[in-house]
Design a protein around this nucleic acid. Structure first.
Lengths: 236, 236
DNA sequence: GGCTCGTTATGTTATAAAACATAAATCTAG
DNA sequence: CTAGATTTATGTTTTATAACATAACGAGCC
């Protein structure tokens, strides 16, 4: 497989990049956040948190890529979210004040900011715009989750996989060439994101290649014909 | 079919009953809400809101029962929520500041309180505990939605229907006899809640009756053996 | 009382997708 | 550089569930 391009090699992120948080704070609040957060680095396949753990900090993904998945019944996992910078991760459990009900694992090397619970709750109290941002994030993610429930239960395999590729494009974008999906998942992850077996993900990817909708080179996927891909996604 | 019992015949609800809202307000804020809300009544099968509409008020269900569903691809609807008093409805779209992506229809006669957008945003600004309640609600509902995504995609028909019956029991409870589900859905609604065809909902209900797990009398469902029902739900 | 329409019930057939079975290709570690 | 493990690929069989087809039942209406 060709080398992956590291888009962040020259820009080590800081918590100031988390605009959802930092942009709405007063100078005093910014000071508090800057002095009261930790930075951790994770490498590929590291576990960031696991189902059952109780969160004690709010986590922001500064750089890298993360999958969030629930362990299913027949052994198959369901990826419920693919997170991109700079968004909060594990924040659903944090704000529900309960345990994580999914696990987060690194797809691409990550920088993660940890803001202690007490600090976050002080911010929620002092800064209603921050609260509004959290509310809006949760509301949008709930909308996405319900949409996915319907598509994952009702669309056929081709539609589900096509949709997943389009969702990944929306989340991570394309590389400079305008066709290469800027995320490299195993067939198994792709299957777990699309609610199908790994075999069927492989098979269906192959048919997309045969139909000249995409090309596949290892884990690198190039979208050749996005209109057709959207049509496949729509028709189910 | 026997007469349905109206649990609210002697208690017309008011907005003061919406504890998630009213209990955290200051006297001044209570006054504002009391003077600035509308009450509407709906009868069975009425549409409260529809996919695509833009919400301009926050809605609270004072009494009654509501189904929230998304129109699927193959014509089959997916019920994404069954709402009970006294909870907010349609609030996901309201707080995401976008259109409704699902429709809400009355299952049992409803009283609904409408609080105008401007008033809600004033409250969010002045009362951080109210914001926290909204955040917690959304976070919990997102957790439920993701859980359902996994069960609806991975459990088999029996497991899905068993789980739906248990979820309905958790939401609406049982009648005084301790066995009768306190909600009366058509087989079609039950199917749309459980991601299956109406035929299969009918068929599977019958097998549960044969196995003496439940009894069915029209739309009245009695849970005879909840341990077995939980086992069926767990095993998929 | 008989009629119509929506709902419930049940049997049969078709099919999408899982499960199973190998094998080839690729990566990883010693 | 080789050996083992993991991932990808592809063909075959099995099965869960949708789709289809009637029919019985019940509620509301003339």
């Amino acid at each position: 497989m060709p080398r992956r391009i590291d888009n962040n090699f020259n820009t080590e992120p800081t918590i100031k990049d988390v605009s959802q948080l930092y942009d709405v704070l007063t100078d005093e609040e910014k000071e508090k956040v800057l002095n009261n957060h930790k930075v951790k680095h994770f490498k590929k396949n590291d576990v960031i948190y696991q189902e059952g753990e109780i969160p004690d900090s709010l986590l922001c993904l500064g750089s890298g890529k993360v999958k969030v998945y629930k362990v299913g019944f027949g052994g198959r996992d369901q990826i419920v979210r693919m997170a991109n910078p700079t968004s909060f991760i594990g924040y659903r459990a944090f704000f529900a004040e309960g345990p994580h009900v999914a696990s987060a694992v690194v797809i691409e090397p990550c920088t993660i900011f940890y803001i202690p619970k007490a600090v976050v709750y002080e911010l929620l109290e002092s800064n209603h715009q921050f609260s509004l941002n959290i509310i809006r994030s949760l509301a949008q993610e709930l909308g996405f989750s319900r949409y996915r429930t319907v598509t994952l239960t009702q669309k056929h395999i081709r539609g589900r996989l096509a949709e997943s590729l389009l969702v990944l494009k929306d989340i991570y974008g394309l590389e400079d060439d305008g066709v290469t999906l800027n995320v490299y998942l195993s067939r198994e992850d792709l299957a777990n994101f699309s609610n199908m077996t790994t075999s069927n993900a492989i098979r269906t990817l192959s048919t997309f290649v045969n139909e000249k909708v995409i090309t596949v080179d290892g884990r690198i996927i190039r979208i050749l014909d996005i209109e057709t891909l959207e049509k496949i996604s729509k028709l189910g």
